[in-house]
Design a protein around this nucleic acid. Structure first.
Length: 716
RNA sequence: AGCGGGAUGGGAUAGCCAGGAGAUUCCGGCGGGCUCAUAACCCGCAGAUCGGUGGUUCAAAUCCACCUCCCGCUACCA
């Protein structure tokens, strides 16, 4: 970031704005919507400043989560993914997220282009073949790529997924790295088999990426977070997987290999493919995708490619992706805008736990899409997290959008219409002209700073000025002749507000535009239109917005509260296996939740007794047994965890317990313990734990029996 | 432990990256105005040591160091 430099928008070249691909295995909620709205606002704003822009995206159809889900449901992955893809296609327009092209990664364009990328890598000698050990389920004789396998991270020892150490050090894991692999489908311990795979030599691009990251524009998090990777040792990226679902690896000669490309290979290429589809549809004279993506002899380090993503996929867009582009001799991204999460009560949304406000649900409640767009775009800085609360939503919409923006436009236009039948014939005052120019400047700065918020605020501030201005001049106390210049100014401000606000509230802006009697669409005009005279005649305006009913949001807040409570409960009880597919979905705040413990932990300070009573039946749901410890083995790499085998009469269970530092392990065998037998299985450090040994307090003081109860006896 | 992001008047946020008159906007509180406007809008007040400590500087919310506390991904007490 050699500072603001002089590379301001617009440039002479066409730009492309992309949004992180929604993953086609679940619905869209407000968290996802934030990055789509952000991208849409930004691309509209770019056009407002005169930048030729294509806004493209597509559904992410491949990858193991979809394959896993399809397998579980006994369905075809393509059919599964397409169903969601269709839904996305319908939902985006409802929020005025208006892509110039929306494709998907499984379509012909992407498939072809992806293969071409890979061929270029091969031709450029950036791909090497390597024998690696891949996880394999011996029982069903099936390879276990990525998230088909879980195990222990070789770096930090945490439980990890096959493709990343999601719970520990967050490292990206290459196939074959994970220790103690277990199949996520069958639960079988996996074994490693030797397979030949293809690798993109990221190491070829280390120096390049170091320069790239200094050049990259966008939000700070995107420019800083990857530095650790780029400045460290870059490992080569395995670009193939042993799977059926995906794009076949283009190996030319022997079509024998049943390898497909890693999902993160074909997913970002969809950005290019989708742009290409757009070009093909409108014609290259209108928009030439090659001018954006390169290969046209321009400086590849000076593109106008802007990626809008969620902060969970920063590395993919700032390390893998630029290397992939470079290796195929395409241009590099100019900017990456990584937005924060949308939270509820400060905690992340969760698809699998229904801890969310769904896109569909929002619309069903009858709210204006512009309201949510406004809220999401301006509630906080783009890279910060934004809390979604219905009452905050109502507050900001009613007080700012309706009260300030809508009200100003309405009162101005109504006054003008009643007294003058339109815009009075008078000159624009220098004060107002200057103020509008300032607003245009704020808007421009917002675009150049990649600040969606500032872009949105520019219009609101101008409207606020408008209210002050009309109040200060009190035209209602003046005769028509005196009032004319004031109203002329107000109508001009109202028009300017409409132009400036259009990227955020496109549909309302459009209505106001036609109320003003302006020809064409506000979507088409540029910022300069804010200072052009409004029509001399226009009809009676209607109120641009209808307020949000407080009772309505109150009710929704209650409903949401219940839903969140339900999610937390489900959560407190359960392990974290359900997290599987979420992380890829962009804008999704993975699964948080530490369930209430953690606090009151200090010795000497006892937790209060629980208020909620449970029924005897509920108690009986717990299958608690007497057990006898047979063997004790410390778990390698873990501080406290040990692997126990416990005789519970009917069988012997393997249980993991965190008691290593608190008990002399040698004394444990033979000790009787109390075991919760029907707790769901969990995996800790790659070791399965089938039950829970009960212990008291922080010290994990093991419970035992005083009499002669025998293993297997039920506690009642 | 690791990585990232924070800590600003009662609550929620902006400013800090390009350091300079004690600071934005929204809600809330108090008082006033106006009546064109969707009980809207406008004005004024209430007064906060801009998390702590030290440093750089003529000057720091804004830069540097250390610290504390939060939050997020996530965790070994299953």
């Amino acid at each position: 970031m050699s500072d603001t430099e002089d590379r301001r928008f617009p440039t002479d070249d066409p730009a492309v704005v992309t949004c992180g691909l929604p993953y086609a295995n679940g619905g869209i909620h407000v968290g996802h919507l934030r990055s789509f709205v952000g991208g849409d606002v930004f691309s509209r704003a770019l056009e407002k400043v005169g930048q030729e822009t294509a806004f493209v995206c597509g559904s992410d159809m491949h990858g193991t989560p979809i394959a896993v889900q399809a397998e579980r449901e006994g369905r075809d992955p393509e059919e599964l993914a397409l169903r969601w893809h269709e839904e996305f296609t319908e939902q985006f327009p409802e929020f005025d997220v208006d892509f110039d092209n929306y494709g998907h990664t499984h379509d012909g364009t992407n498939t072809e282009l992806t293969r071409e990328f890979v061929r270029r890598w091969i031709d450029g000698d950036h791909v090497i073949e390597r024998e690696i050990q891949v996880a394999w389920d011996p029982e069903v004789d099936q390879p276990l790529p990525d998230r088909f396998v879980e195990g222990t991270c070789p770096y930090c020892g945490e439980t990890a997924r096959g493709d990343e150490c999601d719970e520990g050090c967050q490292r990206h894991l290459e196939p074959g790295e994970i220790v103690d692999p277990v199949s996520t489908i069958t639960g079988n311990p996996a074994e490693y088999r030797s397979r030949t795979h293809e690798f993109l030599k990221l190491s070829d691009f280390q120096a390049y990426l170091q320069g790239f990251i200094d050049r990259l524009e966008g939000t700070d998090n995107a420019r800083n977070q990857p530095r650790e990777w780029i400045e460290g040792e870059l490992e080569d990226l395995c670009i193939t997987r042993d799977m059926d679902w995906g794009i076949d690896y283009p190996d030319g000669e022997d079509g024998e290999q049943d390898l497909v490309l890693y999902v993160w290979v074909d997913a970002p290429i969809e950005y290019v493919a989708s742009t290409k589809q757009y070009s093909e549809r409108v014609g290259t004279e209108e928009f030439d995708w090659r001018e954006v993506w390169g290969g046209d002899g321009r400086d590849p380090e000076r593109s106008d490619i802007v990626h809008v993503i969620g902060k969970d996929i920063i590395q993919h867009h700032t390390v893998f992706w630029p290397a992939m582009l470079r290796a195929a001799e395409y241009d590099e991204p100019r900017a990456v805008m990584a937005c924060g999460w949308v939270t509820i009560d400060g905690k992340g949304l969760s698809t699998s736990r229904n801890r969310a406000v769904w896109a569909e649900e929002y619309l069903e409640e009858g709210f204006d899409a512009d309201f949510l767009r406004y809220y999401l775009a301006t509630a906080g800085g783009f890279q910060g997290d934004v809390d979604f609360a219905w009452d905050r939503f109502r507050e900001r919409v009613n007080d700012e959008l309706v009260g300030v923006v809508g009200n100003f436009i309405y009162r101005s236009l109504l006054f003008a219409n009643r007294n003058f039948g339109g815009t009075p014939g008078a000159d624009l005052s220098p004060e107002v002209e200057e103020r509008i120019e300032d607003a245009i400047g704020e808007f421009r700065d917002g675009v150049d700073d990649y600040s969606v918020r500032d872009v949105g605020e520019a219009a609101v501030r101008l409207a606020r000025f408008g209210n002050e201005y009309i109040q200060r001049n009190e035209p209602w106390k003046l005769d028509d002749e005196e009032a004319a210049p004031v109203i002329r100014d107000c109508v001009q401000v109202a028009k300017a507000v409409t132009v400036l606000a259009q990227p955020v509230i496109p549909s309302t802006a459009e209505e106001v535009w036609s109320t003003l009697g302006e020809p064409g669409s506000v979507d088409e005009v540029r910022l300069a239109a804010a200072l052009e005279a409004p029509p001399a005649e226009f009809g009676e305006p209607t109120e641009p917005f209808e307020k949000v009913d407080p009772e309505h949001t109150e009710e929704l807040a209650e409903r949401l509260e219940e839903r969140v409570a339900a999610a937390s409960e489900a959560d407190g009880a359960g392990a974290d296996d359900e997290a599987e597919a979420d992380a890829d979905a962009d804008g999704e705040a993975g699964e948080a939740e530490a369930a209430g413990d953690g606090d009151g932990a200090d010795a000497g300070e006892l937790e209060p007794l629980a208020d909620d009573r449970i029924s005897f039946e509920e108690f009986q749901d717990l299958d608690i047994r007497v057990g006898r410890i047979e063997t004790v083995d410390p778990i390698e790499g873990a501080d406290d965890l040990v692997k126990l085998t416990v005789d519970v009469g009917v069988e012997t269970r393997q249980v993991v317990a965190g008691i290593k530092q608190l008990h002399d392990l040698n004394e444990l065998p033979g000790k009787k313990v109390v075991l919760l037998a029907n707790l769901e299985k969990a995996e800790l450090f790659g070791v399965e734990s089938n039950g829970m040994v009960l212990a008291a307090g922080e010290e994990a003081d093991l419970l035992t029996t005083h009499g002669d109860a025998v293993p297997g006896e039920k506690i009642r």
